[in-house]
């Protein structure tokens, strides 16, 4: 990283060397960014193209139509899938925020016997590939009759070592003198938690909340396994199913992809900062 201060002797902001370097920089980054966005553009293009197979599309649309979207909404329970996904991502997020802020606070600020060992145990589970636990959890939920239910979708994802790790870090970074002051001001341990420390953890809660919501929203493998009935599909599973059903009708499939991708991109654009911070802090699972 060149330093942010460019205002020093010898740094030329003109001349052929400077301009060729600049051109190279913008050219490289720009072409890369265009290539990166190309699949999105192609998706949108196909979704609004009049030919349902998408064949013969060019990079600039000749005419646009919403026929594919109308088709999609007419033949598929898209609303239900949206609802499922919101319930799924929303519940997992709420449970995570609640449970993990409780545990994160206890692991950071309450001294109790076995605290460090418990934390290690929680964090060590990050190492386990999800395929190891998917099978037994599926068996467990089958026994409970929770296959194709919301509780079956939601419950297993509440155990989130990353959330505990993140919030413990946050609470650890807050000064313990605040807790002392709160105790002198008459708070017990629980009041100290929700009156003093919890409001101060808002940035981390926002980060974790948005991060959890998006990763749950886009989670593919778990709903794929537990939601086998069309009425319980979440959007990613639904897209997969739509594609298998309408194999060559790419116009329809891309309309479905657009419906899934757009909300995520909107969330990302409006909360880029939080999401990137969450990503950076957690270095999440593949």
């Amino acid at each position: 990283m060149p330093p942010s201060n460019y205002d020093y002797p010898g740094y030329e902001r003109s001349g052929p060397a400077y301009w060729s370097k600049t051109a190279l920089l913008y050219g490289g980054v720009g072409i890369g960014a265009l290539l990166w966005s190309l699949p999105f553009w192609w998706m949108l293009l196909t979704a609004v193209s009049a030919n349902p197979t998408g064949a013969g599309s060019s990079l600039i649309p000749a005419e646009t139509t919403f026929a594919n979207f109308e088709d999609l909404f007419a033949t598929q329970p898209v609303g239900r899938w949206f609802f499922n996904t919101i319930v799924f991502a929303g519940s997992v997020t709420l449970f995570n925020l609640t449970f993990d802020s409780l545990a994160g606070y206890a692991l950071a600020k309450v001294e109790f016997v076995g605290r460090e060992k418990l934390f290690l145990l929680f964090v060590a589970t990050i190492m386990v590939p999800s395929m190891v636990t998917l099978i037994p959890v599926f068996i467990l939920l089958s026994e409970l009759g929770w296959v194709n239910t919301y509780q079956g979708l939601i419950a297993p994802l509440i155990a989130n070592p990353l959330g505990i790790f993140l919030l413990r870090q946050q609470f650890k970074s807050l000064p313990s003198s605040l807790g002392d002051a709160a105790k002198i001001d008459g708070c017990n341990e629980l009041q100290t938690f929700y009156k003093v420390y919890l409001p101060l953890a808002k940035p981390a809660l926002a980060t974790l909340g948005i991060y959890t919501f998006v990763t749950t929203w886009k989670n593919f493998e778990w709903p794929l396994i537990i939601a086998s009935d069309e009425s319980m599909y979440t959007l990613p599973v639904a897209l997969f199913a739509v594609r298998n059903q309408y194999f060559t009708e790419w116009g329809l499939v891309m309309a479905a992809a657009t419906v899934i991708v757009l909300p995520v991109l909107v969330v990302f654009m409006s909360a880029q900062k939080y999401f990137i911070r969450g990503m950076t802090l957690s270095g999440m699972k593949g």
Binding site: S177, D180, A181, A182, I184, D185, C187
Partner: peptide
């Protein structure tokens, strides 16, 4: 809280 004391901290510890 029941000791009838008040404390000023080095870091002030203001909420």
């Amino acid at each position: 809280k029941d000791r009838d004391i008040a404390m000023v901290f080095q870091s002030y510890a203001l909420y």
